[in-house]
């Protein structure tokens, strides 16, 4: 029963959504049913967020109690979660500091703490990329040389001064890069990847609907 029930739910839900695709979603029963299912996904998803909150609190609180390595950071994690979450779910009718509107605690924490910290972390990538370009981007063989030359041309093409320099050379090189690199080789490869990924997703969905794929239940 513990296996059969989830497999049946997955089969029925998947089948309804697949069949509903071929019917008018506003006027037919199956179309309305498919929308009902999608509403349930949103509701269940809300509970999974709550589950995540409980889980992260339990794991980190256990580490704080044991005073394990880095417990102080875990304590900060717990404090940050609740300081952000609690004011954001309280009604703004009680105070303009509650809720998620402009001027609320949540908005302030996001704009003046979280966003700058995340942007800073991401910005440091520029330094690592420059360092890696110097240390690792080597023309060791033919494939690496092609990659290196293409990357250099695209990097030049993507900035105004590089484009101006390329325009000094004979032939319309920026246009050639756009036509043959980005809309040629790149487009063909990307299209292959997209089609391949879509086929993979379709076959995986079919395996789940038919109950062949059961790893989502923790079973092989």
């Amino acid at each position: 029963m513990r296996t059969a029930a989830p497999v049946f739910v997955a089969f029925a839900s998947g089948l309804i959504l697949v069949v509903a695709f071929f019917f008018n979603e506003e006027t037919t029963t199956i179309g309305k049913l498919s929308h009902q299912l999608l509403d349930w996904v949103i509701i269940v998803g809300g509970f999974t967020l709550l589950l995540g909150l409980v889980s992260i609190t339990r794991v980190n609180w256990a580490a704080v109690k044991r005073r394990s390595d880095g417990w102080i950071y875990k304590l900060f994690t717990i404090i940050a979660i609740f300081v952000t979450a609690i004011p954001s779910v309280l009604s703004p009718d009680w105070s303009p500091l509650f809720g998620r509107a402009r001027g609320s605690i949540f908005d302030w924490l996001f704009n003046y703490l979280q966003a700058p910290m995340m942007a800073t972390m991401f910005a440091t990538l520029a330094f690592y990329i420059a360092s890696a370009a110097y240390r690792a981007f080597r023309a060791r063989n033919a494939e690496a040389t092609i990659l290196l030359l293409t990357a250099t041309l695209v990097m030049l093409w993507r900035v105004p001064i590089g484009e101006a320099l390329l325009n000094l050379l004979p032939g319309n090189i920026p246009d050639l890069i756009n036509t043959y690199v980005m809309n040629g080789a790149n487009l063909a490869v990307q299209r292959g990847i997209i089609v391949g990924a879509a086929l993979g997703a379709a076959s995986m969905s079919l395996r789940i609907i038919l109950g062949i794929e059961r790893t989502y239940m923790g079973k092989g």
């Binding site: 420059a130 110097y134 981007f137 993507r158």
Partner: peptide, 10 residues
Amino acid sequence: LVHFLIIAFV
């Protein structure tokens, strides 16, 4: 400038 610098590093 950064793109040029990276190309110079390469």
